[in-house]
Simulated assay, not measured.
Amino acid sequence: MDIELREKIAGEITLSDSPAETIRKWREEFKVSQLELSNFLNQSPSVISDYETGRRKFPSIASVRKIVDALITIDERRGGYVIKKYKSGVPSDALIDIKDYDRDVPLEKAIRAMNGKNVSHVSVERNIRGYTIVDGVKAILAFSYYEYSKLYGWSSERAIFFTDVKFGRSPMIAIRVHPLKPAAVVYIQPDNVDDLAIKLADIENIPLLITEMSPEAVSHVMSQLR
């Protein structure tokens, strides 16, 4: 269990001016329903509801820790996606998923899994050692130079996915100006991919791919690759 994250959440709840809202915020961040949390804690669903609406007296520190431990444990059993977001060093509201593989995975295999299409003129005959999925708009607008480097996890030989792509220029411009280069760039359900984005991909020798899968579906299939 991640002690740092556990302490961060518990501290935020206990020190909050509105602990009820903060409990709800973190439960929703972990995508855990009131019923799932109450079942894990072996409590009535009404207890969690009462905490979050303020109808019940603020829980003791021990109870807060039990709630936090439950959220983190549930996430660990699901693959630890929320935990990875907060441990990566990337702004958590921009990072959707990140994972490193323990072996080379052919990019062509990943393309098949995501029903992807290569819109560049660059060969996809290469391997990846992980992937990162980010909110395209938030990543471009909010990431510092240091945070951008964190997108690469343990290896730059990875596919970087961007959501909310309008024309495709901004992500490829960001890729071009940064010294670290990914093995592939993928746009998730882009509105459009203009000629400049493709030209930049060709110049950098980075395959530019698109997929019509949802971010959740992409995360699932990429996490299953072996």
Rank of each mutant, 00 (worst) to 15 (best):
Asp2Ser: 13
Ile9Arg: 08
Glu12Arg: 13
Leu15Gly: 14
Ser18Asn: 15
Ser18Pro: 02
Ala20Ile: 09
Lys25Arg: 15
Glu28Ile: 03
Lys31Phe: 06
Val32Glu: 08
Phe40Val: 04
Phe40Gln: 09
Leu41Ile: 10
Val47Asp: 03
Asp50Gln: 15
Thr53Ser: 15
Lys57Ile: 09
Pro59Gly: 08
Val64Asn: 07
Asp69Tyr: 02
Ile74Gly: 08
Asp75Val: 10
Asp75Ser: 08
Asp75Met: 08
Glu76Gly: 05
Ile83Ser: 07
Tyr86Arg: 14
Tyr86Met: 02
Ser92Thr: 15
Asp93Val: 06
Ile98Phe: 08
Asp100Gly: 08
Glu108Met: 13
Lys109Met: 14
Ala110Asn: 03
Arg112Gly: 14
Ala113Tyr: 08
Gly116Ala: 02
Asn118Lys: 11
His121Asp: 13
Ser123Thr: 15
Arg126Lys: 11
Arg129Phe: 08
Gly130Met: 02
Ile133Phe: 11
Gly136Asp: 02
Val137Lys: 13
Tyr146Ile: 15
Glu147Trp: 02
Glu147Arg: 06
Glu147Met: 01
Tyr152Met: 10
Glu157Tyr: 09
Arg158Lys: 05
Ala159Phe: 07
Ala159Glu: 12
Asp164Ile: 00
Phe167Gln: 09
Phe167Met: 13
Met172Thr: 01
Ala174Cys: 10
His178Met: 09
Lys181Ala: 00
Pro190Asp: 03
Asp191Gly: 08
Asp191His: 13
Asn192Glu: 12
Val193Glu: 00
Lys199Val: 03
Lys199Ser: 14
Ala201Glu: 05
Ile203Asp: 09
Glu204Leu: 15
Ile206Pro: 00
Pro207Arg: 04
Ile210Gln: 01
Thr211Cys: 03
Glu212Phe: 04
Glu216Phe: 06
His220Gly: 00
His220Ala: 11
Ser223Arg: 04
